[in-house]
Every structure is written in C-alpha cells, then in structure tokens.
C-alpha cells in the first residue's frame, strides 16, 4: 500500500473521527522504515511508492494488539489541570468553568449521538466502536464535571455561581 491508500484505509476504519494529513502518514512511514517495521518497494509507474510490512513489523503489531495501554502513556488531562488551577486562581469562577465545559461536552455528545442515530450498516461497525468510545469518554467527563460541581457546592458554597437566575433568564439578559 502507498501513503494515500493507507490514509484511506485508516480513515475508513475510524469513520473520519480522526483525520490524518498525508504529511503525517509519510513521516510515520519513514520512521517505521528506519525502525525496519516496513520496507519500501520500487515506485509504481504513477510515481507512488508502496510499502510492505516486515516480519519485525508484524511482531511489533502483534505485541501492540496484545499489550494493554498504560494510562500513564496517555497525555495528561488538561481539563483536570485547568480546574485545579481555577480553584486556586483568584478571580476565576470555577463553577462557570465547570458549567461551560459541561455544556460543550453535552453538545459534543449530541453530535456523536446524531451520527449514531443513522441506521447501522455492517461496514460501519469499526467506526461505530470509535464513535462509542468518544461517547463514553464524553459521558465520563460530564459525570466527573457533575461530581466536581457537587463537591464544590458542598465544600465551598461561597464559590458557587448564584443560582437565583434560571439559565433562560441569564441568556436573555446577555443577549
């Protein structure tokens, strides 16, 4: 497969939830070639260079599939850090931070659910699972934000945004 084919195959699996730029594909291919996980084949007549996986590459792939990801391998959660800093930074209303993040989370969730509401085709299954992963992550974040809001209200009631103005009034006033 050459770079464009690889990109198309990847995007088909994840259903466009993770767009790749072609530069990224070729950078990754050259790293894989350096580590001897793939080898370049002769260029085709149309000037595209196909790659094939090596035995070492297959072994690495099989190891990757069979090894669970460590949570520490993933990037730090910027949102958790943001909330922690919002708690300790004077002049920042942490409940507003929580609420606006939660609203954004719910909107994302609605978008994903709309995609999901379409009838299921057998070919969709791989990207459905990716979509479900996004939905569950979103849900977890919203639950955690709910928990943060409740904890803040319970332990530092003074920090809570005034709840006397229902949101429709607030929105009207701000328009």
């Amino acid at each position: 497969m050459h770079g464009y084919q690889l990109r198309a195959a990847f995007e088909e699996s994840v259903g466009g939830t993770w767009a790749l730029n072609i530069g990224q594909v070729y950078t990754t291919l050259s790293r894989l070639e350096r580590d001897e996980f793939v080898r370049a084949l002769p260029e085709s007549e149309s000037g595209q260079r196909p790659y094939e996986i090596t035995e070492t590459g297959r072994a690495e792939l099989s190891r990757w599939f069979s090894t669970p990801l460590e949570r520490t391998d993933r990037p730090r959660d910027e949102l958790a850090i943001k909330l922690a800093l919002a708690m300790t930074t004077p002049g920042v209303d942490v409940t507003t931070v929580v609420q606006s993040q939660r609203t954004a989370g719910v909107r994302a969730l609605q978008e994903y659910t709309r995609l999901k509401a379409r009838p299921i085709e057998p070919d969709d299954l791989s990207w459905r699972l990716v979509l479900d992963s996004l939905i569950f992550q979103c849900e977890a974040e919203i639950r955690w934000l709910d928990h943060c809001e409740m904890t803040i209200l319970r332990h530092r009631p003074g920090l809570a945004a005034p709840v006397s103005a229902p949101v429709e009034e607030r929105e009207r006033n701000s328009r």
Binding site: Q99, R102, T103, G105, V106, R107, L109, Q110, Y112, T113, A117, I135, F136, C138, E139, I142, R143, E149, L153, A161, V163, S164, P166, V167, E168, E171
Partner: peptide, 22 residues
C-alpha cells in the same frame, strides 16, 4: 449523559434551579 445525548436540548437541574442548558 449518554442517554441525554439523544435529546435536542439538555438542561441541568441543581436544587430546583436550571443551572445549565445546552
């Protein structure tokens, strides 16, 4: 929240008040 995602609009109630709407 996963189920609320099916709605057109999600409102959050806290102590009897709508604190958030999306």
């Amino acid at each position: 929240a996963r189920h609320a995602g099916w709605a057109d609009r999600v409102i959050f109630l806290r102590d009897g008040v709508v604190v958030d709407s999306s």
